[in-house]
Design a protein around this nucleic acid. Structure first.
Lengths: 237, 237
DNA sequence: TGATGTATCAATTATATATTGGTTCATCCG
DNA sequence: CGGATGAACCAATATATAATTGATACATCA
């Protein structure tokens, strides 16, 4: 007799059943859910009701739909990630570091030309977070965030896409372990001072200076990677 | 009676005819050549003979072939998936030219460091094709082929992917008309001299010089585009 | 107001067919 | 023997068609 009992709310009932399906992994290959028409028939409700429930779940990020394709659990695929995965398989470490040595200084320079005081403030915040955290994993996250912020502040979507590509490649498993080995034994302080000098140049609007600072920073990073690779090569020999 | 006269060498004859076709811009839309079977029939020789001639031209970098697709003049594109199409819609002209001004000099520099004599020879051939053809459409094809060859010779797959992204964006319809308007009224000779200077630097292994020459070349190109855009803006005002 | 059924549109996939370069083979000719 | 030819077949790609699927609108009913 309570309102709750009285609610002939098929939508919320369907919603709960769909949640169970998703949580229980009760989905087809590739995380595919049955079609709306199938769900409508199987659950004995109208298609409109199904759609309302799916809209909620999509808004929650639990699934994504594409017309003509189907409904899938999880997040929609990222074209940048797809392309990055293709390259990552065949790209050598040297190529990635080399490309980074060209792309990121360019972004730093543009950033210096376009950054507003608010942007610079956020960069300083991120740079400080890096040395405030001790967890190596977190250090990596904050460092990546800073570089990404600089890339976005540069205000060039094409170069930003190129940066994202690099970022995705470096996010792959092989790279993570490589960085882990490279990080051990060198001081985070050096990185921090480089970051601060870089942000100083950006704040001053010094395009050339920002480019050079970024290049210097990346060079020390690639040197660390290079040492690890040399050691590995020596072990194999 | 001389050996030369006696040579029943259909291959070299076909080769010369094909060279004329290519040089004269006698190709279909998109720089497409007739199919091997059509050429075989049209020139009155066997298909095997056609293929031998095409192999030579492909090795020279004048054309590329793909099974099931056809034969095309210039350099083969490297697919970037749907990424290019996505950012092409939102990327502004200024962003694309700006990104190009960073990516392509980098590629030219790497190219100078790694190009072999054979690569340089192919570059010169492509550069010559540009001024030898009168058809504006073909000019564009050969110019694109030269830039793509330089990008590929740079030997960095990540930067090459970034270049391909730019290339695909610029291949869209809006860009084609823009370039068409920009091209009218300026001399192809200037471009050619810039190309030759660039290739000279590459041949000499002069990394910095190649970067600078490419930058100068792109600057003149973007100036032409800029003038067209200014004129358009004035018309709208 | 909310649910249902129907119809239609648009994007995508699936399928079949045709085209095209890649390859092999037997044959012929000088 | 080398070069050329013709035929056949393979593999990758394009093209056309139909089927599938989510998106949308509308009429109906409780």
């Amino acid at each position: 007799m309570t309102p709750k009992d009285k609610v002939n709310d098929n939508s919320s009932l369907v919603l709960r059943r769909l949640r169970l399906m998703i949580a229980g992994g009760d989905v087809g290959p590739g995380g595919r859910l049955p079609t709306e028409r199938e769900l409508s028939e199987k659950l004995g409700v109208g298609r409109r009701t199904i759609r309302r429930a799916l809209e909620v779940l999509e808004a929650e990020g639990l699934l994504w739909r594409r017309q003509g394709k189907g409904t899938f659990i999880g997040q929609p695929p990222d074209p940048t990630g797809v392309l990055a995965a293709e390259i990552a398989g065949e790209a050598r470490v040297s190529e990635v570091t080399e490309a980074r040595l060209y792309i990121e200084p360019a972004l730093a320079g543009l950033c210096a030309a376009r950054a507003k005081p608010d942007d610079v403030r956020r960069m300083r915040q991120l740079a400080n977070r890096i040395i405030e955290t001790t967890d190596p994993d977190s250090v990596e996250l904050w460092d990546g965030a800073l570089h990404r912020l600089i890339a976005r502040t540069a205000g060039n979507r094409v170069l930003l896409t190129a940066f994202s590509l690099l970022d995705e490649i470096r996010a792959s498993e092989a790279w993570r372990t490589l960085r882990e080995q490279a990080r051990s034994g060198n001081s985070v302080d050096l990185y921090h001072s480089q970051h601060m000098r870089l942000i100083d140049r950006i704040e001053a609007g010094d395009v050339i200076g920002a480019e050079e600072e970024m290049r210097a920073h990346l060079n020390t990073l690639s040197d660390c990677i290079g040492r690890v690779l040399d050691r590995k090569a020596a072990e194999n020999a």
